[in-house]
């Protein structure tokens, strides 16, 4: 029978852990950074709620359902701004989202390879332009152009729908939607491009080997494969459009009205806060913070819905 000899020497493996300063500091710093995010969200939500309480108490449910915003009469109904934000963002999503997705599809699949980098770079550059520049360009270039050249033509053809009126100053919902569309193109295009680039080559080859042409392979296999990611790109773009303030304030016309005519001036939640806050009285300030609260909830809900939607699409197609 084998015998196990006794240990020769006491263990030389250190059993006591040595306290290290740098490790401790690094740990605390990173933990603090993580905690800060949570704190910021909670504090923001708290401030928005307490700040808007005076206005909410006065208006009650009318703050959400009221469609007139009249500072002189101390009437604060938020509906015109919810309308302005929603419609301008949806217009931006439809116009900018489709252009962004098509642009990436073109770059990744159909354009010559050498074009991918330079155009990709230009698209990224679009994202770096400050929004005030978009606003200035909107006022100086886009509005006159739309007013003189485009809106009359649209009215002539689609005027019967009631969405495109005869008279327009050039500022309004559609103008805001167009400026926002341009602003979200880089967001949508950059993410869509990344998502399409990681679609496995053998997906495309599989479609081509069955006799599909490149457009069919793109439309029927690659885009569906990437649909979860593209959806995420669109939601991020929509998020940017919802919160955009300066550029919208400069082109939307800033009128607290609800009109189905897209050529008429309107106002969005963010643009109205920016234009009124400087000279607002106490109750008006509180009402404006209330608009901020609505925007905050809208953004949170959108993010949540987006996550659900992306997860659902992924589950349905089976792509991990």
């Amino acid at each position: 029978m084998a015998t196990i000899p006794a240990d020769r020497t006491p263990s030389t493996i250190p059993t006591k852990s040595k306290f290290r300063w740098d490790d401790g500091i690094f740990r605390s710093l990173t933990t603090a950074a993580g905690g800060a995010v949570l704190a910021i969200v909670i504090i923001t939500a708290y401030q928005l709620v307490t700040g808007s309480l005076p206005a909410l108490e006065k208006e009650g449910l009318g703050f959400l359902t009221g469609s007139s915003w009249n500072v002189g009469e101390e009437l604060f109904g938020s509906l015109p701004f919810v309308w302005g934000t929603t419609i301008s963002s949806i217009l931006a999503l439809v116009l900018g989202g489709s252009i962004g997705v098509m642009l990436s599809a073109f770059l990744v699949e159909l354009a010559p390879k050498w074009l991918l980098k330079p155009i990709g770079f230009l698209v990224d550059l679009l994202a770096a332009i400050p929004s005030i520049i978009y606003g200035l360009w909107g006022i100086l270039v886009l509005i006159p152009f739309l007013r003189e050249r485009v809106f009359p033509e649209i009215h002539a053809v689609f005027g019967w729908t009631g969405l495109f009126g005869e008279k327009s100053t050039g500022t309004g919902l559609l103008t805001a939607g167009i400026v926002l569309a341009i602003m979200i193109i880089p967001t949508v295009a950059a993410i869509t491009r990344e998502v399409l680039l990681v679609v496995p080559r053998n997906m495309r080859d599989g479609a081509l080997a069955l006799g599909a042409n490149r457009t069919e392979a793109l439309k029927t296999v690659m885009l569906p494969y990437a649909s979860g990611g593209i959806l995420g790109a669109l939601i991020l773009g929509l998020g940017r459009a919802l919160g955009e303030t300066m550029a919208v304030a400069m082109v939307i016309g800033n009128s607290a009205t609800i009109e189905s005519d897209l050529f008429k001036p309107a106002a969005s939640l963010a643009s109205n806060i920016a234009t009124e806050f400087g000279e607002a009285g106490p109750l008006q300030k509180s009402a404006l913070i209330g608009l901020g609260l609505i925007l905050f909830i809208l953004a949170l809900a959108l993010n949540f819905a987006a996550r659900m939607l992306v997860a659902r699409v992924r589950r349905k197609s089976g792509v991990q």
Partner: peptide, 19 residues
């Protein structure tokens, strides 16, 4: 494109479409 309809191909790694 028309040729590939008559000459099919099966790849090294199975590549079912995400559908």
């Amino acid at each position: 494109v028309a040729l590939r309809k008559h000459i099919g191909m099966v790849f090294q790694k199975p590549n079912p479409f995400p559908m």
